[in-house]
Computed example of a mutant assay.
Amino acid sequence: MIEVKHLSKHFGTQLAVKDLSFRVDNGQICALIGTSGCGKSTTLRMLNRLIEPSAGEIFIQGKNVTAIPAEQLRRRIGYAIQGVGLFPHQTIARNIATVPRLLGWTRADTDARVNELLSLFRLDPATFAGKYPHQLSGGEQQRVGVARALAARPELLLMDEPFGALDPLTRTHLQDELLRIQKLLGITIIMVTHDLEEAIKMADIIAVMDKGEILQIDSPQALLRYPRPGFVQNLVGGQDRSLHLLATQTLADIMTPVTRPSGPAMATSTSLRDAMAGLIWQGTERLTVVDENGLVVGEVTLENLLKQGARP
């Protein structure tokens, strides 16, 4: 668990972050979202003390981070940024092994962890371990950047716009990969994004920031259904809110159990928005829901989907 209490940061006479307080439970993903210059990245960098707070306290698993030497703290917190920042003259294996080597891991343990992470990110160790960053695509480099951040099994992963520079297709794929891996590892993540759709898709809780303050922190559904008037309401939009709401749930959340096919098949993990698009594209009002093994487990109708997107 990470808990932030009354966190503030001054740069000279400018107040960049003002009296932030929030909590993220173990295994949750929290997204910090807002316009450029609202204090998102400054907040993230205070969490691992790349920037020292002017006031306030930060606790990780109940321990005040000021009681931990800054370098030691950063080795316990993964940090992934836009643009990756891989060492260009080191192999992919050595890039991923950076923090384990600093921590004094054995060669055998380090090599095993590198191979484990490459496999986890679906990068064949035999193919990728000996390559250099310039030999990889942007998406592959970003995978390696996140793998490096996870190498020493950190308690917390901080991500600053990690997918912002990627094309939409690659970005979507890596979002899915990260969600898969986060579910496997149960790691706590705090990420900065300017993209509402990304925040809705990725996060358990979303903190909307403006001018250095948190205006609202809520689950994606609560944020969309009950946005506070003003900046937050403008951010989540008007006509788009129904579509955004559909993106917060999957077919598993609303399906009716059946055992026989009743229409085109979609996986239980499909978002309701993607299911709606599929129904419209195929001109049908009913679809079959299948599990990861392709077995029929339920059905969903167009009528049920429309109800889920209805505004409060």
Rank of each mutant, 00 (worst) to 15 (best):
E155Q: 15
R225D: 13
I190Q: 01
G138A: 10
G104H: 12
L117F: 03
Q135G: 09
F11H: 09
G37M: 10
R113Y: 07
T193W: 05
L185M: 14
L224V: 15
Q14A: 13
L243G: 07
K183D: 14
L279W: 08
E155H: 14
E292D: 12
A16Q: 02
R153T: 12
A16S: 11
G283K: 14
L302W: 08
M276T: 09
A203Y: 11
A67L: 08
L302R: 12
G309N: 10
T43G: 00
S262W: 02
D195Q: 06
A126M: 10
Q216R: 07
Q61H: 12
P261K: 11
L157C: 04
V192E: 04
L306T: 13
Q182W: 02
M1Q: 05
S271D: 02
F59M: 08
T106W: 00
I96P: 03
G104Y: 12
L120C: 11
V144G: 01
A277L: 15
T110I: 12
E71F: 07
L44A: 13
D167W: 04
G186N: 07
V192Y: 09
L166C: 04
I205G: 12
S219I: 05
S119E: 15
T110L: 09
A126N: 14
H173N: 11
R180F: 06
H6S: 15
Y132V: 11
T188I: 13
I77Q: 04
D240N: 05
V289I: 11
K183E: 14
L166E: 03
R311I: 13
K9I: 00
F11Q: 06
L20T: 05
R122T: 04
F87C: 02
G12N: 05
F231H: 13
P88E: 04
L123C: 14
A252K: 06
D167S: 06
R49Q: 10
R101M: 11
L185H: 07
I60K: 02
F59R: 10
Q14G: 00
L305Y: 01
D218V: 03
D167I: 01
L73N: 05
T248I: 05
M1R: 02
V236M: 05
I60V: 13
I29P: 03
S242P: 09
R228S: 11
A165I: 11
L223G: 01
K201V: 07
I217T: 13
L136M: 08
R94T: 15
V208M: 13
G186W: 07
S269P: 00
I254Y: 10
S271F: 01
L47D: 00
G309Q: 06
P257Q: 03
I214A: 04
R311Y: 06
I68C: 13
Q28T: 06
N48T: 09
G238T: 15
